[in-house]
Computed example of a mutant assay.
Amino acid sequence: MRTFEPELIIFDCDGVLVDSELLSCQSLADGLAVAGVALSLDEALKLFLGRSTKAVLEHYRSLGRELPESFLADLKQRVRDSFSASLQPIPGIAALLSTLAVPCCVASSSDLDRIKFSLQFTGLIDHFGDRLYSAEMVARGKPAPDLFLYAADRMGIPPARTLVVEDSVSGVMAAKAAGMTAWGFTGGSHYHGRDGHGILEAAGADRVFDCMRDFSGNL
């Protein structure tokens, strides 16, 4: 089989560049508890991994539950505090980004402010510059393909020549719906004790890997 040679690599941020999924999902569960909504960490991972805060509001609205107006601001502060205390880059990601010869960008369900904070805090921002794309920029978030199509269009690369690196089911589904090659990454701490390979393969990932030093061997 001929090796795929992408002209663009789109990285998700949370769980791919920074090890943030457990931190953000715990912050979500804690924020919902304050709003009177019970949600365990495992449930948060299953329901909202890779999804936007808009998706959280829409989920509870569909259940007839409107969250307080203060919820999003409270959640943003909880996430910021948690990241400031504990956020780490994914092991090996800085070395990988330093050696890539292919143009790359970030496309994340997080808002742009959070993306920038995460990458600045972990020292990764210089690898991307202003090539940061957020679900805020499109009508529909993941698993819809809108964000990845928008990012590829801004980068001037056809979807068929684009590789997406994702850690979530919704992200893999979005990449495949966009006509892109999708690689699942399971090296984040949120996959410890979970069958990440099975989860992302079932979502349609073309390949799944769990260590950034194995990335170039897949190209």
Rank of each mutant, 00 (worst) to 15 (best):
D113A: 13
V138E: 06
D214I: 00
A139W: 00
S216V: 08
G204H: 02
L75I: 00
L23W: 04
V208D: 01
G204V: 01
P158N: 13
I93L: 00
F83N: 06
A152Q: 03
L219G: 04
E43G: 13
F215N: 01
F215I: 01
F209Q: 01
G129P: 02
T53G: 14
G196M: 05
C25R: 14
L23M: 07
G50R: 12
A205Y: 02
R61I: 07
Y133N: 09
A174D: 08
L124T: 02
V79A: 06
T181R: 15
G156F: 10
V16A: 10
S216L: 15
S168H: 08
R140T: 02
R213V: 10
D146K: 08
G179S: 05
K116I: 08
I199S: 09
R154H: 14
Q26P: 05
S170Y: 13
Y191R: 03
R61K: 15
C25P: 00
G156R: 08
A144W: 13
D210H: 07
V79P: 06
A94P: 00
F11I: 11
L132V: 05
G156N: 09
V106H: 03
S168C: 09
S24R: 14
R131S: 10
S110Q: 09
L63S: 13
R2A: 08
A29H: 03
M173I: 09
I9M: 02
D167L: 08
A151H: 09
C105M: 05
L75N: 04
I115A: 04
S108V: 04
L17D: 10
L147Y: 12
R207K: 15
G36R: 11
K54T: 15
L39V: 11
L45E: 06
F71W: 10
T181N: 12
S98K: 05
A107S: 04
D210K: 03
K176G: 02
L163T: 14
A160W: 14
T122W: 02
S84K: 10
D153I: 00
D113E: 15
K116E: 13
L8E: 05
V164C: 14
F83Y: 15
R61S: 15
G198P: 04
A55D: 15
K142I: 01
E69I: 02
C25S: 14
